[in-house]
Structure formats: structure tokens, C-alpha cells
Design a protein around this nucleic acid. Structure first.
Length: 259
DNA sequence: TCTACGATCCTG
DNA sequence: AGGATCGTAGAC
């Protein structure tokens, strides 16, 4: 971080592209939407093993992020099949969320972030890693859920092979998928899968399927701030399965709150 | 055109 | 704690 350089500028505290005079983003959001924000009522249960219907994703990304805990993400490519149970997610709320890529408007890069719900938004970060998101809310509104960690299920050998390419040695199993760049690499997710549907419909590079798993009780969900961001850094929008050995590291200073 | 900066990972 | 590594967006 570069607090010294950021602190004094005219647009200090604002995302790029948000001009002086624009409405300030809310100083705080809750980990789940209020009733008047659409937080009331449960989504009809999806049978474990079934892909989610599009309507599941056409909701507040906080709800989708929390409910995707326990879901199983599977990727099929020419190299094989790999999958894992989701144990960590983050919600990116939309153009009013300073940490969300939607702040820059709809561009070539963020095209599918702003697209229909139930589709993958896969973007490159730091010039070298890919991150996988499930797009939420309707066409034209840029919001999504970042998947940050998985418990490996299928294709562990394939994951070890893919992940060892970078370093030359096979990482411990817990290091295969405990971070957004790691799980993308382990599953074989890259930019060729940007925009693919999450119900298993394939494109030329492969297919992604997101299926319901055993539900995770509210009491087993922990909330913290999001990792690695500098704007809206305190918003409690990271969701973890309590006690899972497969989540990424939480910084010591981060508050952990119950869902 | 030029430049700054990441929703990260790995090694020391 | 610092380097790798490059596409994107905004500034000029």
C-alpha cells in the first residue's frame, strides 16, 4: 500500500473514475442485506448435486456469496476434470462498491461482470494469476462473487500437476486451492472460460459447473473484511466455513464476526 | 502515448 | 518484506 501518496490527493479515498462531487459510497455495509434490500426470504432449496438455476444468481451478491459456501465447483478441460467444495467467498457489490471492478464502468475486461447472472467472470490479476467469479444480479449491473478457496474433491492429481508447473515442486494439498489464483490454476480456469455459463454449458476451452452441496448452517459461517483491497477495506464481505483447513490465511488484525 | 496500479503468489 | 509481470484505465 502507498498511504502517503494516496492520503493527500484530491480524490483521496475515492476509486479511480469517481469524480469529485459524485455521491460518496456508503461508509459501511452489512454482511447481509436488510429486508428492504431484498434480504428477506430464503431461496428455494436446490437439491445437492444439482446446478443452480439462473434465478439463484440474480440476487444480492452477499446472499449468493454466503450460500455458495458448501457448493461444488467443477471444471472440465481437455486435460481432465477437477472440482472442489467452496469454503471461502467474497462479495463485490457493484458500481457503488469502491473495490468492485464495476467502478470503471462496462469495459472489454469487465464485460461479463456486467452481464447476465449465472455466468463466469474470469479476470487476470497482477499480470500472472486468474481469478474466478460467479456473476450476480441482472444484465447491466456489475456485481459478482469471488471464489477464494476450495476443498479439493475430484482430480487432485491433476491439480498437483498443474500447480507444480509454477514452482517445480508439488505443493502440499492444502496449498493447491487456498487462494483465488491457486484454485484457478488447480482447476485449469483461465481467460478462455470468461463468460461461460455456470450450469455446465461448454465453450471451446471447457466447461464450468457449480452445483449445490450440503448446506452450511449460519452458525458455521464466519465473516471478515475482504483480502487484498485498499478501498472499502473494512466492509465485512468475506465469508468462510468455520474451522475449515482449506481456507486462505486471515490477517491477524482482521475482525472475525459471526454471520 | 505514458504511467500507475492491482480482488495474488512465492521465496527469503 | 519484496519481487514477479502485464493488462487496464486514466492522465497527458
Amino acid at each position: 500500500m502507498t498511504p502517503g501518496r494516496r492520503a493527500g490527493g484530491r480524490n483521496a479515498g475515492r476509486p479511480h473514475g469517481v469524480a469529485d462531487g459524485a455521491p460518496a459510497p456508503p461508509s459501511h455495509v452489512a454482511a447481509r442485506p436488510a429486508i428492504e434490500e431484498g434480504g428477506a426470504g430464503a431461496f428455494p432449496a436446490v437439491p445437492p448435486g444439482s446446478p443452480y438455476p439462473d434465478a439463484f444468481y440474480d440476487r444480492d451478491p452477499r446472499l449468493v456469496a454466503r450460500e455458495l459456501l458448501g457448493a461444488v465447483l467443477q471444471c472440465r478441460t481437455a486435460d481432465g476434470v477437477a472440482s472442489g467444495r467452496i469454503v471461502e467467498t467474497e462479495a463485490y457489490l457493484g458500481p457503488h462498491d469502491p473495490a468492485c471492478h464495476a467502478v470503471a464502468g462496462r469495459t472489454a475486461r469487465t464485460w461479463f461482470l456486467h452481464g447476465a447472472p449465472g455466468v463466469a467472470y474470469v479476470y487476470r490479476i497482477y499480470g500472472m494469476h486468474w481469478c474466478f467469479n460467479a456473476v450476480t444480479l441482472p444484465e447491466g449491473f456489475g456485481s459478482a462473487v469471488l471464489v477464494r478457496a476450495l476443498e479439493p474433491i475430484e482430480g487432485v492429481q491433476l491439480m498437483r500437476r498443474r500447480r507444480s508447473v509454477r514452482t517445480g515442486s508439488v505443493p502440499a494439498d492444502r496449498d493447491l486451492t487456498n487462494g483465488p489464483g491457486k484454485l484457478a490454476e488447480a482447476l485449469g480456469i483461465d481467460g478462455r472460460l470468461d463468460g461461460v455459463r455456470l450450469d455446465g454449458a461448454p465453450n471451446a476451452a471447457g466447461a464450468l459447473t457449480l452445483r449445490a452441496g450440503a448446506p452450511i448452517a449460519d452458525a458455521a459461517v464466519i465473516v471478515t473484511p475482504r483480502i487484498g483491497i485498499t478501498r472499502a477495506a473494512e466492509w465485512p464481505l468475506r465469508y468462510l466455513v468455520a474451522g475449515s483447513a482449506w481456507v486462505s490465511r486471515t490477517p491477524k488484525a482482521f475482525p472475525r464476526t459471526p454471520y
